[in-house]
Design a protein around this nucleic acid. Structure first.
Lengths: 139, 139
DNA sequence: GTTTTATTTAGAATTATTCTAAATACGCTT
DNA sequence: AAGCGTATTTAGAATAATTCTAAATAAAAC
């Protein structure tokens, strides 16, 4: 599993900024997440990654995901206390979990709406991160 | 730990509707959560509840919390994969976790803003629940 | 090329939560 | 109020996701 040159550059830059090394494993996992844009858990990524990199370990998958999140290449998504899922969509957006299928969908949010939500905070609160999660049913 | 008559009635009604029994343990835990309106975890509630009910077990605390959530008397709050916290504020609101103090604050959201957020969903999504969590710093 | 430092790896450890099965309590009927 | 069926409590074991540990390997700096 290899990154296209466009993403390869992004990948190396982003890791560089955090003084992290662009290893084979990190690249492999990043490319897997980019490829199939569902919202896989660490364990799903582990299973997928073994297909083309049989020697990878689960601990490495966790480590790599942590590095990718830290460098801002992917983000985490949590629903209640389910396993953490990972998402390569970096535009601000919300998530929707369908109770029936278990699938997660990205929900775009307009900039003005996001600003309004942030403005709902009294001034003594400085938000670093907002997470907006829906759940319900999707047709 | 006893409930005031106002809450006692609410408590009994709510459990009744779900065919759950108003036991001493459930009442005790509900009153603890009402009393100190921070956002305690199951373990914190367990510790507090032992002060006045030393025989209670952790499993019971989990069971009671589940019943209280099911009957709509309290709600759960999850930040990333931290322990689930519990909240007696039933008005729709968001939560803010201060990274520094670890404290959780309720953030009121106006009805029109909430409606706008729900309307951000394309029509094929039917939301049952929305969770909005901020984190950052509070002065 | 050698050294330094970061990363990977397998397996053990941890943490929050759920499960299990026996004991107890609740609430309904008589 | 006694008895009965069912729900709840309890302690401890089990589970699941994740993190930790320490040795082996790989990347970067010199």
């Amino acid at each position: 599993m290899k990154l296209s040159s466009k993403y390869k550059y992004l990948f190396e830059e982003a890791l560089e900024k955090c003084s992290l090394r662009p290893t084979k494993q990190r690249e492999h996992i990043f490319s897997l997440i980019l490829q199939k844009k569902d919202h896989p858990t660490a364990d799903e990524i582990f299973k997928r990654s073994r297909a083309s990199m049989p020697s990878i370990s689960l601990a490495t998958v966790y480590n790599c995901l942590e590095s990718l999140v830290e460098s801002g290449l992917i983000r985490q998504v949590n629903f209640e206390r389910e396993s953490t899922r990972y998402c390569p969509n970096l535009k601000p957006h919300a998530h929707f979990l369908c109770k029936k299928s278990g699938e997660v969908y990205d929900i775009e949010l307009s900039k003005p709406l996001l600003d309004q939500i942030t403005n709902a905070l009294p001034s003594e609160f400085i938000a670093e991160h907002i997470e907006i999660n829906f759940n319900g049913l999707k047709n």
